[in-house]
Computed example of a mutant assay.
Amino acid sequence: MAKKGMGLLFIRGFKFEQIFQVITALGKVWHIEHFTCANCNLPLGTKNFYERDGEAYCEEDYHKIFAPKCAYCNGPIVDKCVTALDLTWHPDHFFCAQCGRPFGDDGFHEKNGKAYCRQDFLDMFAPRCGGCGHPILDNYISALSRHWHPECFVCRDCHQPFGGRSFFDHEGLPYCETHYHAKRGSLCASCQKPITGRCITAMGKKFHPEHFVCAFCLKQLNKGTFKEQNDKPYCHPCFVKLFG
């Protein structure tokens, strides 16, 4: 800590007059010209000085040698100090590494030895939702090699949640069973339900075998034994009866 020279002592001889100026410091008495900074050797006089291991230092050299250094400017810290990331900083030099703004009430977040404000940290490093693209801050679902907000993990077409049911992957996106088969063209043209087994392809559409029936008598048809009229299939007798 800084200390002051304790004063001057004047001594007068009996037959001759001589004045000696001395300083009392560090528990000793010094000629004023001999009480110097241990580093720069400049006289300290009666100025404030700092003591370290029994030696005196001028204020500038003491801070230069012994004060903690700011991790940003490398200058000595002589007043308030911020300790973070195992380093010391001037308070006004500890700011977001991305935007340069000082940290607010949210504090800071660390990544690779750098400090970031909450917004920049989330923008740069938080996982992005595969649905909305925004940062994920809390619970998430991991699926299709991506992370999702729970409310964003829904069918891409109807936007209905899966609610514990299976989902189907089409080109890296989740779909309910109905819209998955719609994307793949495997919905029955009659009942609009997915076709997961045998199917009949006719009139550019797909049908469950039991749903490919005559539009008039509802008799089940085979692919090669029907007639088409107005985009509807008919058995041969019904076609003749209705259309000649």
Rank of each mutant, 00 (worst) to 15 (best):
V29R: 15
C81I: 15
P233L: 04
K206P: 00
C81H: 06
V29W: 00
H236R: 14
F95T: 14
G185W: 02
C155W: 11
P209M: 05
A143F: 10
M203C: 06
G185K: 11
K232D: 01
K64C: 05
E51V: 10
P209T: 06
F125E: 13
G45L: 08
T225Y: 05
F16E: 12
C81E: 15
C235S: 02
C70Q: 08
D120R: 10
V213D: 03
D123Y: 02
S145F: 09
N48L: 07
G104H: 12
G164R: 10
R198D: 11
K15I: 07
G185Y: 11
I141Q: 07
I65W: 00
H31I: 05
G164M: 10
G224W: 08
K47I: 01
F243W: 01
K47Q: 09
L85Y: 07
K114V: 03
V29T: 15
P209C: 02
W148D: 04
K80L: 12
M6F: 11
P174G: 01
N230M: 13
K47M: 04
K206N: 14
G113Q: 09
R156F: 12
K28Q: 15
D79R: 11
F167K: 09
Q18Y: 08
N74I: 06
P237Y: 01
C191L: 12
D105K: 14
E228M: 08
A38R: 05
D53V: 02
G107T: 04
K227F: 11
F125T: 13
D79N: 12
R184H: 12
C214P: 03
L218E: 12
C132E: 12
R52W: 06
P209Q: 10
M6D: 11
W89T: 04
C37A: 08
G172E: 07
Q220T: 09
H181F: 15
R128D: 03
F108L: 10
L8V: 09
C188F: 01
G100I: 01
D169F: 09
T196Q: 06
S166E: 15
C152H: 15
F212Q: 11
N230V: 08
A202E: 09
Y180N: 05
A126F: 14
L85V: 10
